[in-house]
């Protein structure tokens, strides 16, 4: 009788775990697609004392708080490479994106697929600025359905991170992704 119960429970547990894992992967994939489609905001968060580093606040979106928080690092590196940011009067200047040449769609896809993998190398250039008080902000976004109550849609999470911009630039120059100042000479 016991064996019979176990036989019924194990497949159910396996199915449940698999489902959870696929569900989590789906959210991570959605977050990656958002980064790929530049669906995040990056803003200046003052000066760092260290030369070659930039302190930025990144706003990421997800239904899962953890996913949005962890995606902040990826978004920050993507933002420094492709978006840049404007100054905000807190003592930091505007920053141009590191990308200084035209990139084909294929190049962008290949670069994104490899560099932004979880172990693809981007993480070497970014750290959470944990010593910044009030660095993380959480906002709940709601969607207003017609004649219905407002419904939770997703989180908008602002995380402050430090990006090693000089090291990142050197790495991208070495890989031929961006042009070095002395290229051609």
């Amino acid at each position: 009788m016991k064996d019979n119960g176990l036989k019924k429970t194990v497949p159910f547990l396996l199915f449940f775990l698999l489902g959870t894992s696929i569900f989590a992967q789906g959210k991570q994939k959605k977050a990656d697609n958002d980064t790929y489609d530049w669906e995040y905001n990056i803003e200046c968060y003052g000066n760092t004392a260290k030369q070659g580093y930039k302190l930025v606040k990144v706003w990421s979106y997800s239904k899962e708080r953890g996913v949005a928080t962890s995606q902040a690092k990826k978004n920050a590196v993507h933002g420094i490479i492709f978006k840049g940011f404007t100054g905000d009067g807190r003592g930091c200047k505007s920053s141009r994106p590191l990308m200084n040449r035209d990139m084909t769609d294929k190049e962008y896809k290949d670069f994104f697929r490899d560099f932004f993998l979880d172990d693809g190398g981007y993480a070497r250039f970014v750290t959470y600025a944990t010593d910044t008080k009030g660095g993380t902000e959480v906002q709940k976004l709601v969607r207003n359905k017609k004649e219905k109550k407002e419904k939770f849609y997703q989180y908008k999470i602002g995380v402050v991170v430090t990006v090693a911009t000089d090291e990142l630039r050197k790495h991208l120059e070495k890989e031929g992704i961006i042009n070095a100042l002395a290229k051609g000479f």
Binding site: N47, Q51, K93, S95, R96, N100, N179, L181, G184, F185
Partner: peptide, 16 residues
Amino acid sequence: IENMDDFTYTLQQHFE
């Protein structure tokens, strides 16, 4: 430090 990126950016535009 703050201004060097802007300077090298405009210099690179000139080289390009």
